[in-house]
C-alpha cells in the first residue's frame, strides 16, 4: 500500500483561530487612521513652520506713522527714516511699500477701497535684516528721527510660529502615544479572550510538552497578521483625507500637487508605511507578552 505523504495543518494547535478576526482589525484600522492623521499633522506643521520661519525671520517691517511731517532738516519723516535705513549696516534692500500694496494688505480688514477712507495710513518700508543679533537699537534711532516709528521684526513672529508648532507637535505626539497604548490594550484584550476560550486546548498541548514559546508563537502570528491588515486598511483610508487637507494647505505651504508626491510632502510618504510595521510589532510583542504572562499564571 502506498501511503500519500501527509501534511500538517497550518493551524495545528487550533490556537490561531482563537483571536477574534473581525473586531481586532477594525479597531486597529480606526487607530491607524488616527495615527496617520496625527503623523501628517506632525510632519505638515514641521514643514510649514520651517518655511514660515525662513520667510519671516529675516524680515523687517518699519511703519512711519506721519510720513509727510517735516523733520529736523529739509526733508520729511519718511525720507529721513529711509535714508537712515540705507546707511545702517545689516539692513538690506529697504523698499518703500507702494500705496497699492498697502491697500491690498489692508483690504481684508478695511474693505476694497481702504485708500479712500479718511484714515491716516502710515507709510511702510520693508527690508531684510542680515546683521548679527537683533535689530534692537534700530527702533530707538528711527523713533528719534520720526517719533512713533515702529520696527517689527519677523524674528518675534517666527518665534511665535515656532512655539505654536511645538505645541501642535506635542499634541500630535500625545495622540500617537494614546493610540499606541490603546492598540496595545486592544491586542492584549483580544489575546486574553482567545486564551480563555482555548484554555483546555492549551492545557492539553502544554501537557504534551509544548513550550510557552510554541503557544505564544501561534497567538503572535495571528495577532501580527490581524494588526498589519487593520493598520494597512486604516492608513489607506486616511489617504483621501490627507489629500484633501494637503490641497487646503497647499497655498500656505508653498508647494502644489505638481511638486510631486500627489500633494503630500515626501517625508509623510516615507512615514506612512511605518504605521503597519509599527502595528505588526505591537501585535507581535503584545501577544507574546500576554500569552507568556498568562501561561505563567496558569500553572
Amino acid at each position: 500500500m502506498v501511503e500519500r505523504t501527509r501534511r500538517r495543518a497550518a493551524d495545528q494547535l487550533g490556537l490561531r483561530s482563537a483571536l477574534a478576526d473581525r473586531l481586532l482589525p477594525v479597531l486597529v484600522a480606526a487607530m491607524s487612521f488616527l495615527a496617520a492623521l496625527a503623523l501628517a499633522g506632525t510632519i505638515g506643521t514641521a514643514l510649514l513652520a520651517a518655511q514660515w520661519r525662513d520667510d519671516t525671520a529675516s524680515t523687517l517691517t518699519i511703519q512711519v506713522p506721519d510720513p509727510d511731517a517735516p523733520d529736523a532738516q529739509d526733508g520729511n519723516h519718511f525720507s529721513a527714516v529711509l535714508t537712515a535705513l540705507r546707511s545702517t549696516p545689516g539692513v538690506e534692500n529697504p523698499q518703500p511699500m507702494s500705496r497699492a500694496a498697502i491697500d491690498r494688505l489692508l483690504s481684508p480688514w478695511l474693505g476694497a477701497d481702504a485708500g479712500d477712507l479718511a484714515l491716516p495710513i502710515p507709510a511702510v518700508i520693508s527690508a531684510e535684516w542680515a546683521g548679527p543679533g537683533r535689530p534692537d537699537t534700530l527702533a530707538q534711532r528711527l523713533d528719534a528721527l520720526a517719533p512713533g516709528t515702529l520696527v517689527a521684526s519677523g524674528a518675534a513672529w517666527a518665534n511665535r510660529v515656532a512655539a505654536l508648532t511645538a505645541s501642535l507637535q506635542a499634541c500630535a505626539a500625545a495622540v500617537l502615544v494614546i493610540v499606541l497604548l490603546v492598540a496595545v490594550a486592544m491586542v492584549s484584550l483580544a489575546t486574553r479572550s482567545g486564551l480563555a476560550q482555548r484554555r483546555e486546548t492549551i492545557e492539553i498541548v502544554h501537557g504534551l510538552g509544548a513550550q510557552d514559546g510554541d503557544i505564544a508563537r501561534e497567538f503572535a502570528a495571528r495577532a501580527t497578521l490581524l494588526t498589519v491588515v487593520g493598520a494597512g486598511v486604516g492608513t489607506l483610508l486616511a489617504l483621501p483625507v490627507l489629500f484633501w487637507l494637503a490641497a487646503m494647505a497647499a497655498p500656505f505651504a508653498g508647494f502644489t500637487p505638481s511638486a510631486g508626491g500627489f500633494g503630500l510632502p515626501l517625508p509623510l510618504w516615507a512615514a506612512l508605511p511605518i504605521l503597519p510595521l509599527v502595528a505588526a510589532v505591537i501585535g507581535w510583542a503584545t501577544a507574546q507578552v500576554t500569552v507568556r504572562g498568562w501561561l505563567r499564571r496558569m500553572s
Binding site: 501511503e3 505523504t5 500538517r8 495545528q12 487550533g14 492539553i204 510554541d214
Partner: peptide, 28 residues
C-alpha cells in the same frame, strides 16, 4: 482522554511528535 476536537485521529496522535519537532516522514 483529552483529545483535541478540531484534529483528526492522525493529527492528534502526531501532535506530541510535531511538538518535539520530528520530521514529517518520521511522524508519519
Amino acid at each position: 482522554f483529552r483529545l483535541l476536537g478540531h484534529l483528526s485521529a492522525y493529527d492528534n496522535v502526531a501532535l506530541p511528535m510535531r511538538l518535539a519537532r520530528r520530521s514529517e516522514a518520521q511522524v508519519q
